[in-house]
């Protein structure tokens, strides 16, 4: 059998493609782009919540938040190594991010204005991420699927700590409850946008479905997220900021309003509230860390007598 036949049969039988197998150039390019974009999202995603580590209201919350942000770093690293199995270079991917040639999730371009935002990010943003990511554990590309299994296990802690944080705040003062509602109002629509444009405006989806690197459509996953979240909002005692939100007994799903797609396009193309700040911070971290990387490499070379 030719490489192409093996590839086609592997996909048809729902088996995994491994790095050294033959694969179409388009598949390789799409996988590198998808994995890199996901890795960048994890790395940039450390910033909005990281800003609250020094301002966490208790040692317990601080330890939890540190562990969570450390997990995001870990997820980024699992994913960069998955991208490297396809021949991508980690340093090159970082440069592409810094130079704006590769994207990351638009959600991280919104600011975290109060500590309630930390809770809402865990509940809604990580909740939406879980909806998106669970099906990716069955991605046809083996290294990505394996990284996703590890990531999904850890995301469950992220979502639960967020929800518990919000429950605690909702049991506090009226001012604390208002902070939670305000954070929900700001994060609800951007969370719905995390699933991407509506199906009729998602041009690459069909090919990705055929290659089994995408398992459900954007709108399907968005609906699943809304259905999951509404009862959680009720239990928490907050209102989701959508007047069209209503149970539709006929469909067996919640109806909901249309996100502002023009806003999504703006934020993706670089014009969100924090795009410049996020990239600048990443650029600075890379530059400030350069001497550490060089010193460690020089030390290693000195120990072995062989340049690293």
């Amino acid at each position: 059998m030719t490489g192409e036949e093996v590839f086609t049969e592997t996909i048809a039988k729902d088996q995994r493609v491994e790095p050294r197998d033959w694969m179409p150039d388009g598949y390789r390019r799409t996988m590198i782009r998808q994995i890199a974009q996901h890795a960048h999202s994890e790395i940039i995603g450390m910033q909005p919540e990281g800003e609250w580590i020094t301002r966490a209201p208790s040692l317990r919350r601080k330890a939890i938040l540190l562990a969570k942000v450390q997990d995001e770093a870990g997820h980024g690293l699992y994913l960069y190594s998955a991208a490297e199995t396809l021949g991508a270079d980690r340093g090159d991917l970082t440069r592409r991010l810094i130079e704006g040639r590769q994207k990351y999730s638009s959600i991280f371009n919104y600011p975290t204005l109060s500590f309630a935002d930390v809770g809402v990010i865990g509940w809604l943003v990580d909740g939406a991420a879980i909806c998106n990511q669970v099906p990716l554990c069955r991605s046809s590309f083996g290294p990505y699927a394996r990284a996703m299994i590890r990531i999904c296990k850890e995301e469950s802690f992220h979502q639960r700590q967020g929800y518990e944080l919000l429950l605690t705040m909702m049991g506090g003062t009226p001012a604390q409850r208002d902070m939670v509602q305000d954070a929900v109002n700001r994060w609800w629509w951007p969370s719905l946008m995390m699933f991407g444009p509506p199906d009729d405006r998602s041009p690459n989806s069909a090919q990705s479905m055929a290659w089994k690197i995408k398992r459900h459509s954007n709108d399907e996953l968005r609906q699943r997220f809304v259905d999951m979240t509404v009862p959680q909002a009720e239990a928490l005692g907050v209102t989701l900021p959508d007047p069209s939100l209503a149970w539709n007994a006929e469909r067996g799903h919640y109806d909901f309003g249309t996100p502002d797609w023009a806003e999504l396009t703006r934020v993706i193309s670089g014009d969100g509230p924090c795009n410049a700040q996020r990239i600048e911070r990443r650029r600075r971290a890379d530059e400030d860390g350069a001497w550490v990387r060089e010193a460690a490499a020089a030390h290693a070379a000195k120990q072995t007598g062989v340049p690293a």
Binding site: D89, R90, T94, A296, H299, Q303, T304, A308
Partner: peptide, 28 residues
């Protein structure tokens, strides 16, 4: 820009084999 790549194997508990879990970059 990059340190060399290493493959990582973890023994989950006594009595089991080390199993490949992924890779990472390090200087040594």
């Amino acid at each position: 820009h990059e340190w060399p790549l290493f493959e990582v194997f973890v023994r989950a508990k006594r009595g089991l084999n080390h199993v490949h879990v992924g890779s990472l970059r390090a200087a040594d």
